[in-house]
Design a protein around this nucleic acid. Structure first.
Lengths: 141, 141
DNA sequence: CTCCGTGCAAATGGTTTGCATCTTA
DNA sequence: TAAGATGCAAACCATTTGCACGGAG
């Protein structure tokens, strides 16, 4: 979604299109990985030095409620955020919490099979697979 | 696993079989639902009035590390615990955090298909599907 | 001009930790 | 009796909240 479309979406839902919201939205989409709120804040500060961490949290929740991002709670009591995308598996390292997305046709096919079984439409879903990442595997040797 | 087997497992792994650990283990297995640490503690106090919450946490982590239970982090920064069992889907209500387990042959079949695709053996996995539970659906009407 | 949003600082609350004391093996 | 476990209280820390000010519509 472009910046313009995002502004439209905000207004359509009764929210004001503030520069803070727009910057945060843009920053989030520029991440390759899954950033934490703190990482987003740090990045946003470069363009907007006065933007507070609490605003980051508020905007993240807004984006989540608008269905723009997904919040992934982790085992160390923090969250990482991902931009909404097609169905995939989160490959999570239990040691360093790094997350890799795993996409495959099998997952697509197979998941729609599961969804067909439900007698309801899921709001969303999250599939996590835990395994040590290559770095952590190396360290443990 | 019986109480005796549990004691054996503890000792085999170099842990002492304390009454606290045994009570907590038994209580957890008596829950139908997915209890929080606090709920477990409350229940344990009935049989063991001096058992502290921090011991509950320590034992829960021990059980988790032994692979006896799974910790499910939730959106309100707390956890619920489930006794290890076969592959299933957690049906989670985003409003009240209630969790229902969903078992089906499709899930079994479909998951082993996905696992075959991996070139590694997962430590564990977690599949969550979000949808409003019947009570919350009712309330929102 | 009004109301919503922001920023600051303080509060929150589930979880973790330090340490003296007690228990298990 | 030595290594490990417990219980208490204090610390943690990511996240949330209250409130006065500021900016969007």
């Amino acid at each position: 979604m472009s910046k313009k479309e995002f502004i439209k979406k905000l207004r359509k839902n009764g929210y004001k299109a503030t520069p803070q919201r727009i910057v945060i939205y843009e920053i989030i989409n520029s991440f390759e990985e899954h950033p934490t709120a703190e990482e987003i804040h740090k990045e946003v500060l470069k363009k907007f030095p006065s933007l507070s961490l609490s605003t980051v949290y508020q905007v993240l929740h807004l984006l989540r409620d608008l269905g723009e991002i997904t919040e992934l709670k982790l085992s160390n009591h923090s969250s990482k955020f991902e931009t909404k995308s097609e169905i995939h598996i989160n490959l999570i390292c239990p040691k360093c919490d790094k997350i890799l997305d795993y996409y495959s046709d099998t997952v697509n096919t197979v998941w729609s099979e599961v969804e067909n079984e439900f007698n309801f439409k899921p709001i969303s879903q999250r599939i996590d697979v835990y395994r040590y990442c290559n770095e952590c595997k190396e360290i443990m040797k």
